[in-house]
Design a binder for these strands. Structure first.
Lengths: 213, 213
DNA sequence: ACGGCGGCTGAACGGGTGTTTAGTCGAGTC
DNA sequence: GACTCGACTAAACACCCGTTCAGCCGCCGT
């Protein structure tokens, strides 16, 4: 069945339109708007996916799979340090990225699973760094990985807030630009912190360790 | 009926009910539910506030004022290091706290203004620390303050995500518990990072400074 | 004692939502 | 050619939303 000119399955068109709309407007976006984007009736969305929730689940799954694929590709041939340079290429993943940010902001279980993946990755990178002698060991490697991911997540959210206040481009709008702007503002303080720490001596840490044997 | 037992102005009751509902369910919560909580008709909500958006603005303002008051009180008589112990008292601010988290997740301008305040505070604390010799100076004090606030914001959001995945108590549910649990899991990695940094040498930072004169 | 007024309400309005229903169309099967 | 089946749709449905309307009722100034 070769039907119309460029007719990828309407199912996929619907899913992609949903991902784009959800990413741009959040999960309150209406089915009819999504259907319009996909040049399809609202009823067909239900016909294919059963319900809006199920549609969202399908979007979650597809986004998750896309990210996993992109991540394993990126891991194959790049050192983590220069991945930043590669980030401009992310523009092609714009909708997926925006969707992920919305998902984070929404606070659903899908987002929890996503950050779990990030933490896992960070933990293994850090472990590799420790083994190579470039990263200090930690008493709580998992907690440290979580802290670093929290930094990134928080930076992302704060950039989104800046965008709401008209001070920056929104990650959900133009992910590529937002990411590089974010990086520019974040890298120097981050590197400072990560190489020298914040305090001039270890008295705070010592005091804490005193109380938690 | 000559006014009910404890009849604070219905206006306030409506505002407080709205703050609680918004905090628990997000800003999608319906006017009728809020009105029910305040033992009042939905029409009265509009009568007093004009519109749902205006009601939310009133909530924003009240929460903002409450936080400012609490913050200036906390600043008066506590050293920032032991404020953590004081945090259990926060239980009384539970609804305000939950509202703030929702506001953050919602991504509105009110939240942007709120984190601006946090960054400002952090920056002045850090400056004081630098002056006192306990905190290292930075090439970008504002950026560093933002990075630290981003850490906190990210940690908050990640705790909310854990709650959605059933692994923790939600900051929007029982703020007191959530905060101490968060602190327990976060303090050690944070202190490690802040006293020793992450890297064993300054090569990453040096490389960056090389390229950004 | 009375008029007005503001807090307050139940009911309705208009619009948007996700979903259901009944049905059309086109292609593949016997 | 008759039949089936799945993609697809327009219209309707039931519901929830924020908001409006008309009017009730107790308080207050006069």
């Amino acid at each position: 069945m070769f039907s119309r000119v460029v007719d990828v399955d309407a199912r996929e068109r619907i899913r992609d339109a949903a991902i784009a709309r959800f990413g741009r407007e959040g999960f309150g976006a209406g089915l009819r708007a999504i259907a319009l984007d996909a040049q399809v009736s609202a009823a067909l969305v239900i016909h294919h996916y059963g319900s809006k929730d199920a549609l969202r689940a399908a979007c979650d799954a597809h986004v998750h799979a896309t990210i996993r694929r992109a991540k394993s590709e990126a891991m194959r041939d790049e050192s983590p340090a220069q991945v930043i340079g590669q980030l401009a290429t992310i523009e092609q993943y714009a909708p997926v990225f925006a969707y992920m940010v919305r998902s984070l902001m929404d606070g659903g279980p899908a987002a929890a699973q996503f950050v779990d993946g990030l933490v896992e990755d960070a933990e293994s990178y850090l472990a590799a760094g420790v083994a190579a002698g470039t990263v200090r060991p930690s008493r709580d490697p998992h907690g440290r990985a979580r802290a670093l991911v929290a930094s990134s997540v928080g930076t992302l959210l704060m950039t989104q807030l800046d965008a709401a206040a008209g001070r920056a481009v929104a990650p959900t709008d133009r992910p590529g630009e937002a990411i590089v702007a974010m990086a520019e503002a974040t890298v120097l303080p981050g590197l400072e912190l990560y190489t020298y720490g914040l305090f001039t001596d270890s008295s705070y840490l010592d005091a804490y360790l005193e109380g938690h044997p």
